[in-house]
């Protein structure tokens, strides 16, 4: 009986354990990268308002900047999430993926606006990437806004 169960569910167990470890390592690394790059790009403010805060500011250039990120949810979290969705409650398995996707998208948006003083009118949207119950799931985030360059920035 035990042998039979082991035969049938050993691959699943290995998959769960393996993907738990890979998922954890990848997430730790990603968060380290996010924190480092958030510090590096901290000079560029991003706001969701488009209002000119300083009426005297002279804008030399403005352009659309966009950042996208697709973060996968590994098998372990997908599986636990599937069980979790049967029972109810906060789907904590998907929380960090959503958080990482959003922050990665904002970072990429900022990185594509090198030299800008700020990005205004920032919007962030999410799309779940999943085909029904297939073992492929993830979160896509897209962040876009208007990068503005002030005249003194251009001169400086």
């Amino acid at each position: 009986m035990l042998e039979h169960l082991l035969d049938e569910y050993l691959p699943l167990l290995v998959m769960l354990l393996g993907t738990f470890l890979t998922g954890m390592i990848i997430e730790r690394r990603h968060y380290a990268s996010i924190l480092r790059r958030e510090l590096a790009t901290a000079r560029i403010h991003h706001l969701n308002s488009g209002k000119k805060l300083d009426p005297k500011a002279r804008i030399s250039q403005s352009r659309l900047v966009c950042g996208e990120a697709v973060i996968s949810v590994e098998f372990f979290r997908w599986f636990v999430g599937l069980l979790h969705s049967l029972l109810g409650g906060t789907m904590r398995e998907y929380e960090t993926a959503l958080d990482r996707a959003r922050r990665e998208a904002v970072l990429r948006m900022k990185e594509s606006a090198k030299g800008a003083s700020a990005i205004v009118n920032v919007r962030v949207e999410h799309t779940p990437i999943s085909y029904g119950l297939s073992r492929f799931s993830g979160v896509e985030a897209i962040a876009w806004g208007t990068a503005i360059y002030l005249e003194e920035d251009r001169a400086g």
């Binding site: 738990f20 996010i34 403010h45």
Partner: peptide
């Protein structure tokens, strides 16, 4: 503005061990 939260102490992520 600096990166305010990572893996732990993140208001968008539930507290406690994921495992």
């Amino acid at each position: 503005m600096r990166g305010e939260y990572g893996f732990s102490d993140n208001p968008n992520v539930s507290k406690g061990s994921p495992l």
